[in-house]
Nucleic acid binder design. Structure first.
Lengths: 345, 345
DNA sequence: CTGAAAGCGCTTACAG
DNA sequence: CTGAAAGCGCTTACAG
């Protein structure tokens, strides 16, 4: 450990008090320092390569400049990385450092409380509590002792702000885009489990049909597991049903879309000429790796991470209002959608 | 901000000195405390829900209990999340907290130095410097002022320990498994850019052939971009060449394998009956989403993250030896490999 | 077995 | 314009 230089070393070398060094370096408001002195302090600090000890400053100012990010079973959610990235970059912009703790999906209330406590022990200035697979959660009460925000779920007591993707809008826009291209027989390959996205995506699908005056047809909906295999099975069922085929299929997610592609290929049909396909999640490398590239709906993970940090900053600066925010899910155009009836067949 | 209870509050309530409270709570070695007193302190601490301020402790002990993880363009590497997870869980096991900073891939030396400095300002006990797309790097010299370790690349000066995946062994084992099933015409769908994995995977392929006494045949190798499209083109070229077809194809990565599947399907061939396929990366959701599931080689990201933290801990405890460590890349069996000649065709 | 006191490296009223 | 001093909340020799 090379002993780092402390503020008193700078003071001695510049022949001033530590008070003055602190004022100069921090540009303390309402404190005028002689220009000559200021320069000297700056010169010495630079020459000695002085860097203030943030731990000492934290203790004194009662503000650590750290933000805690609690993720829930990060491993299972491929997009968690984008949340972290968004949060990290927003934190850097605000001169904040991000500390991360991951708790197991099956962690109980006691464990989660311990994780929050560990962050609080480090005097974090705020906590982001990110979850998956839940609509509403009851985070440990200790969360509210500092500015806090939920990602991916709402707070049961509505006392903590939250930010979630607007799944319904995303699905609605996707299906609207199909309608705009003349599609009226639009299938829906749905998932079976009840996660937050399930309801929103289904409602968005129905919204768009209703807007367009298209009656929802149960024969155009098939369910499966939210994986490629489930998508294959659902699409196969859809295509094998008697009656007119759908001209487009909206999928619960990109994984299912992967299976839908295969089912369509197995039926000797082509995307998008015979059938248009839209996914959800914009999950790489599926979306761009499929052929043709999958038109899909993107989840605002990066944006939610950044929004959460910004919310923490406003809370720190006095904003007391807790609210629920939905961030838009934009449609990403690739090559799997075409106007209806373009096929020469 | 609810004013948290401090050690002096516990001392006052238990009618002892803060010294005693500290000794009891920290179980200071070689310090005996009267059992009655000990119980009382413990009771009061629990009742007041006292939690020591880690910032104050850090300042006093000159040890923050924090580890800094510097990731390089996290966004572009889908597996970074597993590194973070491995590091985070290992950190938790060692009662350490993980602070994360992400630097842009195109960040210059000055920016990287700033990122390291920001971590050092927080008095981190160690730094993990994770990179992608490099064989050898020259991290900022400041890195060596604390225990440090590189993930994904070696240190040019060999003074910092590093941990990397054993790409060559992974590729060798994959191709060996093909040889063991009787394959002798084993194609290689290679990538074009020169990243660390490129050389190792190619060498591993050649190793296995040589071991088996199979002469490397340039006609069985085709290159492409390391994406699904590149894999499709390379495999198409391979299958369209005059002469005997390969009975198996080893792919540079899973993305390319995705395109290889399509090319094989377009040629009216079946996996694994007509051609076996092995990928590399075990990248979800490709690997399990393809049909049949892709047999592939897994990258030890989680393990590298954990190894890095453990290395930091040993360094802190006195281990001075810097070294280069390679972690094995295990073969993951799914459904894309079969013995040669199983096809009735 | 227990406690008074110093000190980690800063910032910040306060005084001059 | 500048500095002496207190104090953030702990730990740890040291003394008794």
């Amino acid at each position: 450990m090379s002993s780092r230089v402390r503020i008193k070393d700078v003071a001695a070398e510049a022949d001033v008090s530590v008070t003055t060094v602190s004022h100069v370096l921090n540009q303390t408001p309402h404190t005028r320092v002689n220009e000559e002195t200021r320069r000297r302090v700056l010169d010495v600090a630079a020459r000695l390569n002085y860097r203030p000890n943030r731990v000492a400053r934290s203790l004194r100012t009662q503000s650590s400049g750290m933000i805690g990010l609690l993720t829930e079973e990060f491993a299972t959610t491929p997009h968690a990385g984008r949340i972290i990235l968004g949060a990290q970059e927003a934190a850097s912009r605000n001169n904040l450092t991000l500390a991360i703790i991951n708790s197991a999906l099956q962690a109980d209330a006691v464990e989660r409380r311990d994780d929050v406590a560990a962050l609080l022990d480090r005097q974090v200035d705020g906590i982001i509590y990110a979850t998956v697979f839940h609509d509403v959660v009851s985070p440990p009460a200790e969360l509210r002792t500092v500015p806090s925000v939920l990602i991916g779920a709402r707070d049961r007591t509505r006392r903590v702000s939250s930010v979630t993707p607007d799944e319904r809008q995303g699905a609605r826009d996707a299906v609207r885009s199909l309608v705009a291209l003349g599609h009226r027989r639009i299938g829906f390959v749905a998932n079976t489990t009840d996660v937050p996205a399930t309801r929103g995506r289904r409602l968005g699908y129905l919204d768009a049909l209703e807007e367009a005056g298209i009656e929802a047809d149960p024969d155009l909906v098939a369910e499966g597991e939210a994986e490629a295999g489930g998508g294959f099975e659902a699409a196969t069922a859809l295509l094998d049903r008697p009656g007119e085929r759908p001209t487009a299929i909206f999928c619960y997610n990109d994984r299912m879309a992967m299976g839908v592609y295969r089912a369509i290929g197995d039926h000797g049909l082509r995307i998008p000429d015979d059938i248009s396909v839209i996914g959800f999640d914009d999950q790489e490398p599926i979306a761009s790796g499929l052929y043709p590239g999958l038109t899909t709906v993107s989840l605002p993970h990066y944006e939610m991470g950044a929004w959460a940090v910004d919310s923490l900053v406003s809370q720190r600066d006095g904003d007391r209002a807790a609210g629920t925010h939905r961030l838009p899910c934009p449609l990403v155009h690739r090559g799997s959608v075409a106007p209806v009836g373009v096929s020469p067949a």
